[in-house]
């Protein structure tokens, strides 16, 4: 087996760029790091001397902390940048900002931006590897990876053994504001590439205008019809600003039709789980009791996020090129 990953990617910008093999290999890599996270001393010296900078042009708690934790667990140095308190407040452009940081010799830039495509643009300007940590309504690839990793764990639990390679046969419903959600976009791509059946559930106003090209099995506005069949229900955060945009008649109506109530959760399959990318609006898309129940894997997702991001950072900083120089004897020598 030659690795599908080696030397192929320098950036992680969208799930759409990844092939199935690469997804599988990243998840397998994350298995190794999940073990590191569970150790009494959860730190390895692998990326000593490398620098990871988080550049967040939009608010975040978990993603930023998760990336910083992942970098620290690998012994990389971390830097964080936020707009307030920076020269951007004085009007410095995005390009000048990232080029300045790049000149400091940063190895990985983790970028979150309110505009779709911003990380792609940054990747063109800098020498560092760029990771998209959420760009506008486009993608949030590491969230999708950690969701797949969590679902893989669910399959392993069910079968009792090592996690399977992919998610074949798993039925997942993604419920909520699909139209504005970068999480939904990345998740649909990753889940379906790994063989899961994806259903979308949303009010018509929050469903994308066109679903052409979306690799899904079904889309509709009926949660009740699907609840009993799904292996996992993925609830998206209802962005409350959508209310003011007139896309929803009322919060209560949304909660009644699309929220995962205790009653709906009772009708879920044995062993089926509930995922949520956080932060949760308890009582809107998810009932408080359901969020704290056995089915909810929300804290597991957060824990897995660190392992998956360690895998991503490791992969991006791994030397490119596959085989070492094919000098006679040297390849073998390097092994011990």
């Amino acid at each position: 087996m030659t690795s599908a990953l080696v030397g192929v990617r320098r950036h992680l910008l969208s799930i759409a760029d990844l092939k199935r093999d690469e997804l599988i290999e990243l998840l397998a890599l994350a298995d190794s790091f999940a073990e590191v996270v569970d150790r009494p001393i959860p730190k390895v010296p692998t990326l000593r001397g490398r620098t990871v900078a988080t550049l967040f042009f939009e608010a975040s708690t978990r993603t930023r902390l998760s990336f910083e934790t992942a970098a620290k667990r690998l012994s990389a140095d971390t830097m964080s940048f936020s707009v307030s308190g920076s020269s951007m407040a004085k009007g410095e452009s995005l390009r000048d900002t990232v080029e300045t940081l790049d000149a400091m010799g940063i190895d990985v830039m983790v970028v979150r931006h309110h505009s779709a495509g911003a990380p792609h643009q940054v990747a063109r300007w800098v020498r560092a590897a760029v990771v998209n940590a959420g760009d506008g309504q486009h993608e949030h690839p590491t969230q999708a990876l950690l969701d797949c990793f969590t679902l893989r764990e669910v399959l392993a639990e069910r079968a009792g053994g090592r996690p399977p390679e992919d998610l074949c046969g798993l039925k997942v419903a993604i419920v909520g504001d699909v139209r504005h959600s970068r999480v939904a976009r990345s998740d649909v791509l990753a889940l379906s590439a790994l063989g899961a059946e994806v259903h979308l559930v949303a009010p018509a106003t929050l469903m994308p205008c066109s679903l052409e090209g979306w690799p899904i099995v079904g889309a509709g506005a009926e949660l009740d019809a699907l609840v009993g069949e799904m292996d996992a229900i993925y609830l998206l955060r209802l962005q409350l600003e959508r209310m003011s945009a007139g896309l929803l008649p009322s919060l209560r109506e949304y909660a009644t039709r699309f929220g995962l109530s205790t009653e709906r959760a009772m009708r879920m399959k044995e062993g089926a789980v509930v995922l949520h990318p956080g932060p949760m609006n308890r009582g809107v898309e998810i009932d408080a009791a359901v969020a704290s129940s056995e089915r909810a894997r929300v804290t597991r997702q957060v824990r897995n996020g660190v392992a998956v991001r360690m895998a991503v950072l490791f992969h991006l900083l791994e030397p490119a090129g596959g085989a070492p120089a094919p000098l006679e004897g040297l390849a073998d020598r390097a092994e011990r």
Partner: peptide, 26 residues
């Protein structure tokens, strides 16, 4: 034990931690 993450040549060549370490003992 998988020592791949502790090697001094991680940056010189591709290293893939393959199997997770299983060491449940202090």
């Amino acid at each position: 034990l998988d020592a791949a993450l502790y090697r001094d040549d991680v940056t010189l060549r591709p290293v893939l931690p393959q199997a997770a370490t299983h060491l449940d003992h202090d």
